[in-house]
Write a protein that binds this DNA or RNA. Structure first.
Lengths: 233, 233
DNA sequence: AAAAGTCAAGAGCACTGCTCTCGATTTATC
DNA sequence: GATAAATCGAGAGCAGTGCTCTTGACTTTT
């Protein structure tokens, strides 16, 4: 006979079991194959009972998305922190490798947060803040370099016109991430981040159409080049 | 009384109706909501009859993927051809805008080919060739500029080591796309294409987390900057 | 001890992909 | 031209899905 659990204890325990089962099924079969019934089976509970813990399948999806964002965010944060003493460009490359490694280790989680949205599912507001952790973390590298005077600002032939709406947007964005440099740099960082995302997505989604045998080398070369464009040395 | 159709005529006609219904459902509801039963309903046929024309749901998906690739490829080709007389950088930006416009007009098709793969579905070999049309088309811009002597080659601090595996891969890739320039340029083009893909994906997949109010301006600024990095002026 | 709240279970609805059989019709063969 | 072969749409059926509702047992609060 198991020790008698209080109502609250039993509840948190079952909730954890459900989330664990969801995570494991997401990892093995992917988001679209995730079903509440199979989660219920794995937990050893009947399907309708799951609805006492989750509002819907989308609810489970949302929780898994937030989990994934935070897991990735932790990985990138750690890479940035542990390389605090290194050269800015190396820190940037390290952060990129952290993203890539995490995605390779958790492809379904990556697809869940960065892939095509699950149809009929609209990500609620809860997911937006953890979703910004990676770009925020990347900016800190640039910010650190800027404050240390290590950021190389090369003259540009085409700066964003100060009268344009884009310029205003970039200024706003700069304020959000608390960056002090020029808006052109903000654009470069935005570019570098989208490029990093694109590179990882290509590799994860189209199993690297084998255009290149060593993806890690390509990734390093690509991220290093973007770091150079930003002005990180 | 309708004119009597031969077996072959009726078959091709029904096949077309099925594909049209599939395309329309893909456009309105997305890939995951695409069901053979609803396609059958739209065509006015019973669900099992569809299996006389398609092997499976995946079969339909594959055909739609090839369709989408070719539709996008046509759009980009046209943008590149009609801007043949313009400056290389402008041609590049135009091609990028073609990709972006097509994606905005056909978000579900874009998600189908560039988003997270449908679980349990492995894209067959038929899809790989149409899938390379866009990067191939982009290379022609660089190739044209290179042959015309318009490609600005700026000295790089970090060229890909000629002894590395990556260098070999890039050389191979250069041969495939029949480009004559340096492998470093191949890397830049690869970077630019990934970045373009990343930018469009961000906009399509995460309904542009409203970091910027005018996505078109951002897209133009970003693609123009990448064109500059390649050496297109 | 009684009332209120919480829980798992099960049945049921509408939907999915896919298979199989059954007549009807068209095509190909003799 | 008759007959055999191939093709086709229809329908039933299987196993699965998300989700809702009711029922009965249990725990907590009053």
């Amino acid at each position: 006979m198991p020790p008698k659990l209080s109502r609250a204890e039993a509840r948190t325990q079952t909730m954890k079991a459900i989330m664990d089962a969801g995570r494991s099924q997401l990892a093995t079969d992917g988001a679209a194959a995730l079903s509440l019934r199979s989660v219920a089976r794995e937990v050893g509970i009947v399907s309708s009972a799951v609805y006492r813990y989750l509002d819907s399948r989308d609810d489970l999806l949302t929780r898994l998305i937030i989990d994934a964002y935070n897991s990735l965010g932790d990985a990138v944060d750690e890479a940035i922190l542990t390389s605090a003493k290194e050269a800015p460009a190396d820190r940037w490359v390290n952060a990129g490798q952290a993203v890539r490694s995490w995605a390779a280790a958790n492809p379904h989680e990556y697809a869940l947060v960065f892939g095509s949205p699950v149809p009929g599912y609209a990500a609620p507001a809860d997911t937006v803040i953890p979703g910004t952790r990676v770009p925020f973390a990347l900016v800190t590298i640039v910010q650190d370099a800027y404050l240390a005077g290590d950021l190389v600002v090369t003259p540009r032939e085409d700066t964003v016109a100060s009268t344009s709406q884009l310029h205003e947007d970039l200024k706003l964005l700069r304020g959000v991430v608390d960056f002090a440099g020029d808006t052109d740099i903000v654009l470069d960082v935005l570019n570098a981040w989208t490029q990093m995302f694109g590179l990882v997505s290509f590799e994860i989604f189209m199993q690297t159409r084998d255009v290149v045998s060593e993806n890690e080398s390509l990734f390093e070369a690509a991220t290093r080049r973007m770091a150079h464009h930003i002005g990180l040395r």
